[in-house]
Design a protein around this nucleic acid. Structure first.
Lengths: 134, 134
DNA sequence: GTGGCTGCAAATCATTTGCATATAC
DNA sequence: GTATATGCAAATGATTTGCAGCCAC
């Protein structure tokens, strides 16, 4: 049984072909694809897969914390298979998203000004090294 | 001449009644309102003000750095008259946004992994102190 | 068998676009 | 007088909703 099936079983989710395919695609693809990107890539292999299935599964997988949703791109949600807390850099030119490892002791508090913190997203914007060089 | 007119002059923007009104409203209102909120509040006083004028002016004012756009709320953009870098807490229950003063030396770098950083947004999510108490 | 998954079409809703008129300077 | 602001109506586009049939277990 693949690691993806195990992940789904642990999360208590039924194993469907499409759901496994999405997890597999995300594991192989660290470019932080959007729902549309995932749909474009997968509906070629599984020509029966609809965009709705992609949306439904992304929602389910995020709820079960098997994927993380990144809202750094105002246009559309992007997804990441790395669910441990980390941060992101968004290139305003090429619109690529890079993972960022940021050390900050103050980010580990469970509360802040009395508010209970459940999650943190650090979003950096600018021009990425490739676009600067090009 | 009001501080708002001076801000606009310094930014090289023409002084229009509506634009001044938006700046004034934002200075008095630290609840991080959305375009819709601003429109609802102002189109009562200035019944000629259309939603388009609000959208146009918000865009202009953000470009001129007289306002800051906050994209912590996936549903819609929110705006802040404090333009110095700071961060935000979003309450998943009441959807209010709180300002957050976060000290983190690593946030001051101009580059990261070779990427040129132009701006940083730290978004915290959870349940605010009021909703926890209530 | 039953509950969750799939996928089609239609709806939603913040925001953008095009354009004609009005206003700032 | 010219450039910019205003505001109307229509378009955009990601995402959601409702619902019938299908598949996992």
């Amino acid at each position: 049984m693949s690691q993806f099936c195990e992940q789904l079983k642990t999360a208590g989710l039924p194993l469907t072909t499409h759901r496994i395919a999405i997890l597999e695609f995300m594991a192989d693809n660290h470019s932080h694809p959007s729902a549309e990107d995932i749909y474009s890539a997968l509906h070629q292999k599984f020509d029966s897969m609809s965009k709705m299935t992609v949306y439904n599964n992304l929602q389910t997988l995020v709820s079960s914390k098997l994927l993380q949703e990144i809202d750094i791109d105002k246009e559309k949600a992007r997804y990441d298979c790395i669910t441990a807390t980390h941060h992101h850099f968004y290139c305003n030119v090429c619109k690529k998203i890079y993972d960022v490892a940021l050390e900050c002791p103050n980010l580990n508090h469970e509360t802040m000004d009395g508010h209970a913190i459940e999650s943190v997203q650090g979003y950096f914007f600018g021009t990425c090294r490739e676009c600067r060089a090009g």
